[in-house]
């Protein structure tokens, strides 16, 4: 963690913290990535979001990243993170912010829900640093996907080449499709 000894340094830390808050980061992420005090972070959070940050622990399991939909979203994010990380000399947290913004662009264009929160994305990066998770190439399509480090990945096939039959059929998706149909029918009714 960098210490903010100068006024400019502190300004930079505040800018970083507010970027993260705007992306929806939890307080624990801010505490870990900036040198600002908890009181100042709380104040900043309330100023930006307009309410107190959620309490409770961060999700800590690596298993979430292995389930079908989260795995795909995490894999896209980690590919972006790794290419940004290799091509630039930014601090890791800056790379997290850039990669997460680019991830959101993709998801928005495909009209999908943001399955991966910035807090999860940060956590995922930490799991990679700690060597608990890594990425491996699918033997069918060659894309990089998130896997457990000590899993046997000899003939790894990704969740998109070998889709489970119920993949993506979540309740939220069904509700969204239903809402779309509703909207369309009201539009038709209005037009008629």
């Amino acid at each position: 963690m960098k210490k903010a000894k100068t006024v400019l340094g502190e300004a930079r830390q505040i800018a970083l913290a507010s970027d993260l808050i705007h992306l929806g980061a939890r307080l624990q992420v801010l505490e870990s990535e900036t040198s600002l005090s908890r009181e100042r972070l709380l104040k900043l959070y309330k100023e930006i979001v307009g309410k107190s940050p959620p309490k409770g622990m961060l999700p800590f399991s690596t298993d979430w990243f292995m389930t079908w939909q989260p795995n795909i979203h995490s894999s896209l994010y980690i590919n972006l993170f790794q290419s940004l990380n290799r091509s630039s000399e930014l601090d890791e947290i800056e790379v997290v912010i850039h990669a997460y913004r680019m991830y959101r662009e993709y998801v928005a264009r495909l009209k999908m829900p943001e399955v991966l929160s910035v807090t999860r994305a940060w956590r995922l990066t930490r799991f990679f640093d700690a060597g608990m998770l890594t990425s491996t190439a699918c033997t069918e399509c060659g894309g990089n996907f998130v896997v457990h480090t000590y899993e046997l990945t000899g003939g790894y096939v990704c969740g998109l080449c070998d889709m489970p039959s119920r993949a993506g059929k979540t309740r939220a998706n069904r509700m969204a499709a239903y809402a779309d149909a509703e909207n369309e029918s009201t539009e038709v009714a209005l037009a008629g």
Partner: peptide, 25 residues
């Protein structure tokens, strides 16, 4: 179906971003 189209979009994105790494290195 919309779900399959989304999955295809994500699949393409993962392949293209993976490819970006090779191009940069």
């Amino acid at each position: 179906g919309a779900e399959n189209a989304q999955a295809a979009g994500m699949h393409a994105a993962i392949l293209m971003t993976g490819n970006a790494i090779e191009a940069v290195v």
